[in-house]
Design a protein around this nucleic acid. Structure first.
Lengths: 214, 214
DNA sequence: GTCTATATCTTGATAGAC
DNA sequence: GTCTATCAAGATATAGAC
């Protein structure tokens, strides 16, 4: 009935927990919309401890966003080396990789939010180099042509967008939504829908005075 | 040195001015990141008057976002009817239309921010129906195939993203950025770059006590 | 290491003057 | 119609106990 099992967790691991929570919450609400309180809640620690650990909300977002970009770049890089045949059906190999990324929605959505922050003095540069990093991985390491890069990036942005929209959540009510999803994901539609099945229509906005049950 | 010319403007027109300002500011900072104060500043009115006019920041965003979606749908619809030959090069006709939309960046960026609000109780539904509306216009009124819709929407999301990133602002410093821009906009690159030339690296975050010069 | 206060600042919204 | 002044709530960050 009290603290839900205060088991001893090494600080490093708890730090990771907080980063994971940050990824989810920032992915849902964006940088400005997210609160350190909601992140703390999701990580099961106090709000003060989140801030204390990362120094500031700004630092926390920078770290979460950097991690997200790095993760995406790594997944593409690895997918690129996995298939021996360069060119040919490389697009679909990368497509698979992208679908896998959907499993951790936070990564994709945090990145998309980062990409909307071009105006920000600190995150703007981070966002631009992040996009260019991914572009370079696709072109120089995976070996896509410029046109292929553009098409792949475009599709990626559309996927991020429909995830942010929560389109998977309404396929049962809106036939058009299912239609569009199918058109985007084709054979992977079913898998993507099950990967995002946990997505509630929207996470209820918390309104407790602060911390825990009222 | 005082009020910068308090010329008499009809309230209806001033309301439009506020909506335009809202489009720009929401486009730059998103719903949560924008303040009614910044919008008021951009419109040249008092913060209280903005809230008074629209009832709440939430209402203001709903109206600005709805306007943006309607505008985009209208532009596509009109572009679709302009060219007599259906199919064929319809894609490039729409491409032109999209480039024209870039001229009013606020429309595109506010829409993109709307699309990140899937979790929001009020804006989530608005965002989803907005996307589906545009999809239906492309498919049912313009006559694109499902595949063409998907490609066009994807490219649109990529364009929105690079605009939000502020990629046009760094083409002179980062060759890769110019490369990517060229790859996306091809023949229209030059035009797009001049349309976005006014885009400062980022709008300085205002830090006055409140209102006007300190 | 991690939590419980709490100081401080930002910001949306309201009241009331002009 | 539009502004000035102000309130109340929310949120980040800090201090200090345990």
């Amino acid at each position: 009935m009290n603290k839900p099992a205060p088991r001893r967790i090494p600080a490093a691991e708890r730090r990771e927990l907080m980063l994971d929570a940050a990824s989810v919450v920032f992915g849902e609400r964006g940088y400005a919309g997210a609160t350190t309180d909601a992140i703390a809640d999701a990580a099961g620690v106090s709000q003060a401890y989140v801030v204390r650990t990362f120094g500031s909300k700004e630092n926390l977002f920078a770290e979460a966003a950097t991690r997200a970009i790095d993760r995406i770049a790594a997944v593409f890089r690895e997918a690129g080396t996995r298939s021996p045949a360069p060119g040919a059906d490389m697009q679909s190999v990368l497509g698979r990789a992208y679908v896998d990324l959907v499993a951790d929605r936070g990564i994709l959505l945090t990145t998309m939010h980062l990409f909307t922050l071009g105006h920000h003095p600190r995150f703007g540069p981070l966002a631009r180099t992040g996009m260019l990093d991914i572009y370079r991985v696709l072109r120089d390491e995976v070996g896509l042509t410029d046109t292929q890069c553009e098409e792949f990036l475009a599709k990626g942005m559309l996927i991020n967008t429909v995830l942010g929209l929560g389109l998977p959540g309404i396929v049962d009510d809106e036939p058009e939504a299912r239609n569009l999803m199918t058109c985007i994901f084709e054979d992977d539609t079913h898998e993507v829908l099950s990967l995002t099945a946990d997505q509630e229509p929207f996470t209820a906005i918390r309104r407790e005075t602060r911390r825990g049950q009222p």
